[in-house]
Computed example of a mutant assay.
Amino acid sequence: MTSTQPRHQFSARDDLLHDVSNSGPHARESLLWTAPLPSEQLLVFVYAWREAGRRWGRFLFVGGPDMTRPEFLSFEEDAAFSGDDLDDCTVGGLHVRQPEPLRVAELGFTGEELDLSLRFEGIHEPFSWHDNADGCPDWVADNRFEQSCLVSGQVSLHGRAIDVKASGGHRDHSWGARNWNMLQHWKWINATAEDGRSLHAMIMEVKGQQLINGYINSDGRLCPIVHARAEAELDDRLVHRAVSGRFEDSAGRTMNLECTYAAGWGMPIQHLVLNEIAMSATLDGVPAVAHVELGWPADYVERLCP
Protein backbone atom coordinates (compact mmCIF):
# COMPACT_ATOMS: atom_id res chain seq x y z
CA MET A 1 0.00 0.00 0.00
CA THR A 2 1.34 3.42 -0.98
CA SER A 3 2.34 5.60 1.95
CA THR A 4 3.18 9.25 2.40
CA GLN A 5 3.64 11.79 5.18
CA PRO A 6 0.59 14.04 4.89
CA ARG A 7 0.07 16.92 7.28
CA HIS A 8 -3.13 15.33 8.54
CA GLN A 9 -2.73 11.81 9.91
CA PHE A 10 -5.79 9.63 10.47
CA SER A 11 -6.09 7.10 13.26
CA ALA A 12 -8.12 3.90 13.41
CA ARG A 13 -10.67 5.89 15.39
CA ASP A 14 -11.42 7.94 12.27
CA ASP A 15 -12.94 4.88 10.60
CA LEU A 16 -15.60 4.95 13.32
CA LEU A 17 -18.36 7.37 14.30
CA HIS A 18 -17.67 11.03 15.12
CA ASP A 19 -19.42 13.58 17.26
CA VAL A 20 -20.78 16.23 14.86
CA SER A 21 -23.04 17.94 17.39
CA ASN A 22 -21.14 21.25 17.02
CA SER A 23 -21.31 21.29 13.21
CA GLY A 24 -24.51 23.32 12.90
CA PRO A 25 -27.79 22.66 11.08
CA HIS A 26 -26.13 20.74 8.23
CA ALA A 27 -24.33 18.28 10.52
CA ARG A 28 -23.75 14.93 8.84
CA GLU A 29 -21.44 11.95 8.85
CA SER A 30 -21.34 9.97 5.62
CA LEU A 31 -19.61 7.03 3.99
CA LEU A 32 -19.41 6.28 0.28
CA TRP A 33 -18.21 3.25 -1.68
CA THR A 34 -18.23 3.19 -5.45
CA ALA A 35 -17.33 0.40 -7.87
CA PRO A 36 -17.37 1.40 -11.55
CA LEU A 37 -17.55 -1.66 -13.80
CA PRO A 38 -17.39 -0.25 -17.32
CA SER A 39 -16.71 -3.64 -18.94
CA GLU A 40 -20.08 -4.77 -17.54
CA GLN A 41 -21.76 -1.41 -18.30
CA LEU A 42 -22.55 -1.00 -14.59
CA LEU A 43 -21.85 1.39 -11.73
CA VAL A 44 -22.33 0.17 -8.15
CA PHE A 45 -22.85 3.10 -5.76
CA VAL A 46 -23.42 2.75 -2.00
CA TYR A 47 -23.91 5.65 0.43
CA ALA A 48 -24.79 5.73 4.12
CA TRP A 49 -25.17 8.72 6.43
CA ARG A 50 -26.17 9.88 9.89
CA GLU A 51 -27.77 13.32 10.26
CA ALA A 52 -27.02 15.43 13.33
CA GLY A 53 -25.82 12.34 15.19
CA ARG A 54 -29.29 10.83 15.19
CA ARG A 55 -31.18 9.76 12.05
CA TRP A 56 -29.60 7.24 9.69
CA GLY A 57 -30.18 6.87 5.97
CA ARG A 58 -28.72 4.89 3.11
CA PHE A 59 -29.12 4.40 -0.58
CA LEU A 60 -27.75 1.91 -3.02
CA PHE A 61 -28.08 2.01 -6.77
CA VAL A 62 -26.67 0.21 -9.77
CA GLY A 63 -26.50 2.33 -12.90
CA GLY A 64 -26.62 0.84 -16.38
CA PRO A 65 -26.37 2.07 -19.97
CA ASP A 66 -29.57 4.18 -19.70
CA MET A 67 -28.94 7.36 -17.66
CA THR A 68 -32.68 7.97 -17.18
CA ARG A 69 -33.28 4.94 -14.97
CA PRO A 70 -31.09 2.85 -12.67
CA GLU A 71 -30.88 -0.90 -13.02
CA PHE A 72 -31.50 -1.07 -9.27
CA LEU A 73 -32.37 1.51 -6.62
CA SER A 74 -33.01 1.14 -2.90
CA PHE A 75 -33.36 4.24 -0.71
CA GLU A 76 -34.16 4.63 2.98
CA GLU A 77 -33.96 8.10 4.53
CA ASP A 78 -34.94 6.84 7.99
CA ALA A 79 -33.06 3.56 8.18
CA ALA A 80 -32.68 1.23 11.14
CA PHE A 81 -29.13 1.07 12.50
CA SER A 82 -27.80 -1.88 14.44
CA GLY A 83 -24.31 -2.37 15.84
CA ASP A 84 -22.00 -0.62 18.26
CA ASP A 85 -20.01 1.33 15.66
CA LEU A 86 -18.92 1.38 12.02
CA ASP A 87 -16.51 -1.54 12.37
CA ASP A 88 -19.48 -3.93 12.20
CA CYS A 89 -22.98 -2.57 11.68
CA THR A 90 -26.13 -2.73 9.57
CA VAL A 91 -27.89 0.30 8.07
CA GLY A 92 -31.24 -0.50 6.54
CA GLY A 93 -30.14 -3.98 5.52
CA LEU A 94 -26.70 -2.86 4.32
CA HIS A 95 -24.04 -4.73 6.29
CA VAL A 96 -20.78 -2.80 6.77
CA ARG A 97 -17.60 -4.28 8.23
CA GLN A 98 -14.21 -2.61 8.58
CA PRO A 99 -11.89 -5.42 9.69
CA GLU A 100 -8.71 -3.42 9.00
CA PRO A 101 -9.16 0.27 9.93
CA LEU A 102 -8.25 2.80 7.23
CA ARG A 103 -7.53 -0.03 4.79
CA VAL A 104 -10.40 -2.50 4.26
CA ALA A 105 -14.18 -2.17 4.12
CA GLU A 106 -16.60 -5.00 3.35
CA LEU A 107 -20.19 -4.53 2.20
CA GLY A 108 -23.05 -6.99 2.03
CA PHE A 109 -26.62 -6.53 0.81
CA THR A 110 -29.35 -9.02 -0.07
CA GLY A 111 -32.54 -8.10 -1.89
CA GLU A 112 -34.99 -9.53 -4.40
CA GLU A 113 -33.19 -7.98 -7.37
CA LEU A 114 -29.67 -7.41 -6.03
CA ASP A 115 -27.21 -9.39 -3.94
CA LEU A 116 -23.75 -8.04 -3.39
CA SER A 117 -20.69 -8.90 -1.38
CA LEU A 118 -17.80 -6.52 -2.02
CA ARG A 119 -14.44 -5.90 -0.40
CA PHE A 120 -12.78 -2.50 -0.79
CA GLU A 121 -9.04 -2.58 -0.13
CA GLY A 122 -7.15 0.72 -0.07
CA ILE A 123 -4.10 0.96 -2.30
CA HIS A 124 -2.70 3.96 -0.40
CA GLU A 125 -3.14 5.73 2.91
CA PRO A 126 -6.36 7.77 3.31
CA PHE A 127 -5.98 11.34 2.07
CA SER A 128 -7.42 14.44 3.77
CA TRP A 129 -8.62 17.46 1.81
CA HIS A 130 -6.88 19.53 4.49
CA ASP A 131 -3.64 18.59 2.73
CA ASN A 132 -4.67 20.61 -0.33
CA ALA A 133 -3.90 24.30 -0.64
CA ASP A 134 -7.63 25.12 -0.71
CA GLY A 135 -8.17 22.98 2.38
CA CYS A 136 -11.41 21.32 3.45
CA PRO A 137 -14.08 24.07 3.51
CA ASP A 138 -16.07 24.18 6.74
CA TRP A 139 -19.34 23.72 4.80
CA VAL A 140 -18.00 20.44 3.33
CA ALA A 141 -16.79 18.72 6.50
CA ASP A 142 -14.68 19.04 9.61
CA ASN A 143 -12.53 16.44 7.90
CA ARG A 144 -12.85 13.75 5.28
CA PHE A 145 -10.70 11.09 3.76
CA GLU A 146 -10.58 9.81 0.21
CA GLN A 147 -8.99 6.51 -0.78
CA SER A 148 -8.49 4.70 -4.09
CA CYS A 149 -9.31 1.01 -3.72
CA LEU A 150 -9.25 -2.35 -5.38
CA VAL A 151 -12.68 -3.97 -5.28
CA SER A 152 -13.30 -7.70 -5.27
CA GLY A 153 -16.36 -9.85 -4.71
CA GLN A 154 -19.67 -10.75 -6.30
CA VAL A 155 -22.68 -8.86 -7.62
CA SER A 156 -25.91 -10.58 -8.66
CA LEU A 157 -28.27 -8.23 -10.50
CA HIS A 158 -31.65 -9.55 -11.69
CA GLY A 159 -30.07 -13.02 -11.70
CA ARG A 160 -27.01 -11.90 -13.65
CA ALA A 161 -23.90 -13.02 -11.74
CA ILE A 162 -20.80 -10.83 -11.94
CA ASP A 163 -17.42 -11.65 -10.40
CA VAL A 164 -15.43 -8.54 -9.50
CA LYS A 165 -11.69 -9.18 -9.35
CA ALA A 166 -9.36 -6.42 -8.12
CA SER A 167 -11.18 -3.73 -10.09
CA GLY A 168 -10.58 -0.05 -9.42
CA GLY A 169 -12.92 1.65 -6.96
CA HIS A 170 -13.07 4.40 -4.37
CA ARG A 171 -14.34 5.14 -0.88
CA ASP A 172 -14.64 8.21 1.31
CA HIS A 173 -15.69 9.07 4.86
CA SER A 174 -16.58 12.57 6.02
CA TRP A 175 -17.93 14.18 9.17
CA GLY A 176 -19.06 17.69 10.03
CA ALA A 177 -21.22 20.07 8.00
CA ARG A 178 -22.48 19.32 4.49
CA ASN A 179 -24.18 22.33 2.92
CA TRP A 180 -25.00 21.53 -0.70
CA ASN A 181 -26.34 25.06 -1.20
CA MET A 182 -22.80 26.41 -1.57
CA LEU A 183 -22.09 24.51 -4.79
CA GLN A 184 -22.73 25.99 -8.23
CA HIS A 185 -21.11 23.14 -10.18
CA TRP A 186 -18.47 20.50 -9.58
CA LYS A 187 -16.51 17.64 -11.10
CA TRP A 188 -15.70 14.75 -8.75
CA ILE A 189 -13.24 12.43 -10.47
CA ASN A 190 -11.80 9.09 -9.37
CA ALA A 191 -9.74 6.77 -11.55
CA THR A 192 -7.54 3.73 -10.93
CA ALA A 193 -5.23 2.17 -13.51
CA GLU A 194 -4.19 -1.44 -13.97
CA ASP A 195 -0.66 -0.67 -12.75
CA GLY A 196 -1.88 0.79 -9.41
CA ARG A 197 -1.60 4.51 -10.16
CA SER A 198 -4.74 6.45 -9.24
CA LEU A 199 -6.29 9.88 -9.17
CA HIS A 200 -8.83 11.70 -7.05
CA ALA A 201 -9.92 15.23 -7.95
CA MET A 202 -12.73 17.52 -6.88
CA ILE A 203 -13.07 20.76 -8.85
CA MET A 204 -15.74 22.99 -7.29
CA GLU A 205 -17.29 26.27 -8.42
CA VAL A 206 -18.32 28.17 -5.29
CA LYS A 207 -19.31 31.83 -5.11
CA GLY A 208 -17.59 32.52 -8.41
CA GLN A 209 -14.32 30.88 -7.33
CA GLN A 210 -12.79 27.54 -8.25
CA LEU A 211 -11.59 25.26 -5.45
CA ILE A 212 -9.41 22.21 -6.12
CA ASN A 213 -8.94 19.14 -3.96
CA GLY A 214 -7.47 15.72 -4.48
CA TYR A 215 -4.30 13.73 -5.05
CA ILE A 216 -2.12 11.86 -7.48
CA ASN A 217 -1.01 8.38 -6.42
CA SER A 218 1.86 7.00 -8.49
CA ASP A 219 5.19 5.20 -8.04
CA GLY A 220 4.62 4.69 -4.32
CA ARG A 221 3.98 8.39 -3.60
CA LEU A 222 0.72 10.09 -2.66
CA CYS A 223 0.80 13.88 -3.21
CA PRO A 224 -1.82 16.64 -3.17
CA ILE A 225 -3.03 18.09 -6.45
CA VAL A 226 -2.09 21.75 -6.96
CA HIS A 227 -3.45 22.30 -10.48
CA ALA A 228 -6.36 20.63 -12.24
CA ARG A 229 -8.02 21.05 -15.61
CA ALA A 230 -10.90 18.85 -16.74
CA GLU A 231 -13.14 19.20 -19.76
CA ALA A 232 -16.34 17.26 -20.41
CA GLU A 233 -18.11 16.45 -23.64
CA LEU A 234 -21.80 16.92 -22.77
CA ASP A 235 -24.95 15.68 -24.48
CA ASP A 236 -28.21 17.62 -24.73
CA ARG A 237 -29.06 16.80 -21.08
CA LEU A 238 -25.64 17.87 -19.74
CA VAL A 239 -24.61 14.25 -19.29
CA HIS A 240 -20.87 13.80 -19.76
CA ARG A 241 -20.11 11.32 -22.51
CA ALA A 242 -16.34 11.86 -22.39
CA VAL A 243 -13.97 13.58 -19.97
CA SER A 244 -10.34 14.57 -20.35
CA GLY A 245 -8.09 16.19 -17.78
CA ARG A 246 -4.57 17.11 -16.80
CA PHE A 247 -3.50 17.26 -13.16
CA GLU A 248 -0.32 18.35 -11.38
CA ASP A 249 0.68 17.55 -7.82
CA SER A 250 2.90 19.24 -5.23
CA ALA A 251 5.91 17.18 -6.37
CA GLY A 252 5.59 18.59 -9.90
CA ARG A 253 4.29 15.33 -11.35
CA THR A 254 1.51 15.39 -13.93
CA MET A 255 -1.18 12.86 -14.77
CA ASN A 256 -3.45 12.80 -17.81
CA LEU A 257 -6.94 11.31 -17.83
CA GLU A 258 -9.07 10.27 -20.78
CA CYS A 259 -12.40 8.50 -20.30
CA THR A 260 -15.66 7.66 -22.07
CA TYR A 261 -19.18 6.78 -20.95
CA ALA A 262 -20.11 3.25 -19.96
CA ALA A 263 -23.00 3.39 -17.45
CA GLY A 264 -24.63 5.65 -14.90
CA TRP A 265 -27.65 7.46 -13.53
CA GLY A 266 -28.73 11.08 -13.11
CA MET A 267 -29.39 11.12 -9.37
CA PRO A 268 -31.67 13.87 -7.96
CA ILE A 269 -30.49 15.19 -4.58
CA GLN A 270 -32.37 18.13 -3.06
CA HIS A 271 -32.09 20.98 -5.61
CA LEU A 272 -29.30 19.25 -7.59
CA VAL A 273 -28.78 16.61 -10.25
CA LEU A 274 -25.71 14.42 -9.78
CA ASN A 275 -24.74 12.62 -12.98
CA GLU A 276 -22.90 9.55 -11.70
CA ILE A 277 -21.05 7.74 -14.50
CA ALA A 278 -18.75 4.74 -14.74
CA MET A 279 -16.23 5.33 -17.51
CA SER A 280 -13.64 3.38 -19.45
CA ALA A 281 -10.44 5.33 -18.96
CA THR A 282 -6.71 5.69 -19.26
CA LEU A 283 -4.27 7.36 -16.87
CA ASP A 284 -1.17 8.45 -18.76
CA GLY A 285 -2.16 5.93 -21.41
CA VAL A 286 -2.48 3.01 -18.97
CA PRO A 287 -5.91 1.29 -19.04
CA ALA A 288 -8.04 2.35 -16.08
CA VAL A 289 -11.57 2.55 -14.76
CA ALA A 290 -13.14 5.79 -13.57
CA HIS A 291 -16.15 7.14 -11.76
CA VAL A 292 -16.87 10.74 -12.70
CA GLU A 293 -19.67 12.73 -11.06
CA LEU A 294 -20.75 16.11 -12.43
CA GLY A 295 -23.16 18.07 -10.27
CA TRP A 296 -25.60 20.67 -11.58
CA PRO A 297 -28.43 22.78 -10.15
CA ALA A 298 -31.59 21.03 -11.35
CA ASP A 299 -33.28 24.25 -12.47
CA TYR A 300 -30.21 25.15 -14.55
CA VAL A 301 -30.44 21.82 -16.38
CA GLU A 302 -34.16 22.33 -16.99
CA ARG A 303 -33.68 25.85 -18.33
CA LEU A 304 -31.02 24.73 -20.79
CA CYS A 305 -32.58 21.38 -21.63
CA PRO A 306 -36.38 21.82 -21.74
Rank of each mutant, 00 (worst) to 15 (best):
N22T: 03
D85V: 04
E146D: 14
L17Y: 12
A281D: 07
H95R: 14
D172Q: 02
H124P: 15
V96T: 10
G53L: 10
I212C: 12
S218G: 00
H291E: 05
L294Q: 06
L107D: 14
L150H: 06
D142V: 11
T4F: 06
C305V: 00
L102M: 13
G214T: 04
Q209V: 13
L199H: 07
T34Y: 15
V206E: 11
W56F: 12
D85E: 03
L86W: 13
F59E: 11
A166C: 09
R97S: 04
D219V: 14
A105R: 13
D78A: 14
H26T: 04
Q184K: 03
E125D: 11
M1I: 08
W180V: 14
P99M: 11
H173W: 04
S3K: 13
E258S: 08
R103K: 11
E248Y: 04
A251V: 02
G196R: 05
P287I: 12
A161C: 11
D84P: 03
Q210V: 06
R97F: 10
G111K: 08
G63R: 05
G214P: 09
T192W: 13
G208T: 05
S3F: 02
A228L: 05
F10H: 03
S152I: 07
L16P: 15
Q5N: 04
A232N: 00
R7N: 15
F72A: 08
L17T: 14
A298Y: 00
E121T: 08
R241F: 00
Q184N: 12
P25Q: 10
L294I: 14
V243D: 01
L42W: 01
L37I: 05
L222T: 15
L222Q: 06
D163R: 06
S23T: 12
L86E: 15
S39E: 09
M267C: 01
E276W: 04
L222S: 04
F59I: 04
P25H: 04
S11P: 06
P70F: 08
H185N: 09
G295T: 01
S167A: 14
S74N: 08
W186Q: 15
A105E: 14
D284L: 05
A52S: 15
N132A: 03
C223I: 12
D84M: 13
C305M: 01
A133I: 13
R237T: 00
L16I: 12
L157D: 05
W33N: 12
D85W: 03
D19T: 14
L150K: 12
F10K: 02
H185R: 09
R55T: 15
S198Y: 10
A79N: 05
L183V: 11
G266V: 00
G208N: 01
M255C: 06
V91I: 10
F109A: 09
I269P: 03
R54P: 15
V273K: 01
S21H: 09
P99L: 12
S117L: 06
D19N: 10
A288D: 03
H200Y: 15
A288Q: 05
N213H: 10
G169T: 02
L234R: 01
P287Q: 11
V104I: 10
S174E: 14
T260V: 07
K207V: 13
G92N: 07
D219K: 02
N256K: 06
H124A: 12
P25R: 08
E276N: 04
R229V: 02
H185F: 06
F45N: 06
R69C: 07
V226P: 02
C89T: 15
A230Y: 00
V301Y: 01
V44R: 05
N179M: 15
V239T: 00
E302V: 04
